[in-house]
């Protein structure tokens, strides 16, 4: 599944006739496989769907990778801090996490985007900052048990500071779990981003995005279902492929460590 996605993102931009923006109102709403110049057809404005799809998937992935990087960074730092130092800072950080989990992410993002805007970079940051709690909880629970282990006690007895213990012992020991979680979360973030774009609050036109393509195609559901089908399939391939990958990574990890 990811192979198709890779071809779409990496190869398609170099095909002849790659063009996301040129409108051709004489050749609009073309079905797939009708015209060799537009393999997947054209949209209502006559733009080439294959080209737009390629860019849309690339944008989705870039946004998701950026956001996951931020959330993994924030969540891991929070989890390490809360789990190692415990006490009041732990209570405060985890309460913030609990509250955030109780707010529907999409709703939260809608309100944030409405007040702050939806420039791409801002969108990445907002997506990242609303998705850290999972990492925070997982890392914290691992750290709570790791810090009682004797190699941590031994390091402290040898004069290691909290910072040393966190950087040299705790972080390396939680990292593989964070990577597994991050792989899974890419799919989650792609879903959220495409939902936002679908209601017009995510990636802004003219940049192509999967959510917006589906929204625009919805109007032609009867006459040109491929306008929805094609981006839908792309979303499924991206999210399903990532899920599949992260599950396999998880299984292989747990096998190799036992």
């Amino acid at each position: 599944m990811l192979a198709i996605v890779a071809v779409l993102v990496l190869v398609v931009p170099f095909l002849p006739g790659f063009d996301t923006d040129t409108q051709d109102l004489g050749d609009n709403l073309l079905a797939p496989l009708q015209n060799p110049a537009h393999l997947l057809g054209t949209d209502a404005l006559g733009r080439d769907i294959l080209s737009r799809l390629s860019v849309a998937v690339r944008v989705s992935l870039l946004v998701a990778f950026g956001a996951v990087l931020i959330s993994a960074l924030v969540g891991t730092s929070v989890g390490l801090t809360a789990g190692y130092f415990r006490g009041r800072i732990d209570t405060v950080l985890m309460s913030i996490g609990d509250i955030q989990l109780a707010i529907p992410v999409v709703l939260l993002l809608i309100v944030l985007v409405a007040t702050l805007g939806s420039r791409p970079l801002l969108l990445v940051v907002l997506l990242g900052l609303t998705d850290w709690v999972g990492y925070g909880r997982v890392v914290r629970s691992m750290v709570v048990s790791l810090r009682e282990q004797e190699f941590v006690q031994a390091a402290r007895s040898a004069g290691a500071s909290g910072f040393w213990v966190i950087r040299k012992h705790l972080l390396p020991n939680v990292l593989s779990q964070v990577v597994i979680l991050a792989a899974f979360e890419i799919g989650v973030v792609v879903t959220i981003e495409s939902s936002l774009s679908f209601i017009g609050l995510g990636i802004q036109p003219p940049t192509p995005s999967l959510g917006l393509m589906i929204n625009e195609g919805q109007r032609y559901l009867q006459s040109n279902p491929s306008l929805v089908f094609v981006p839908a399939l792309a979303i499924f391939l991206v999210i399903g492929g990532i899920q599949f990958l992260s599950q396999n990574v998880g299984v292989r990890r747990s096998r190799s460590t036992t």
């Binding site: 282990q149 004797e150 190699f151 006690q153 031994a154 007895s157 040898a158 012992h169 390396p172 020991n173």
Partner: peptide, 14 residues
Amino acid sequence: QPVFQNPYGSLDAR
């Protein structure tokens, strides 16, 4: 300096 009980937990596995 300490030496602890659990020979499995006393060294960082990495």
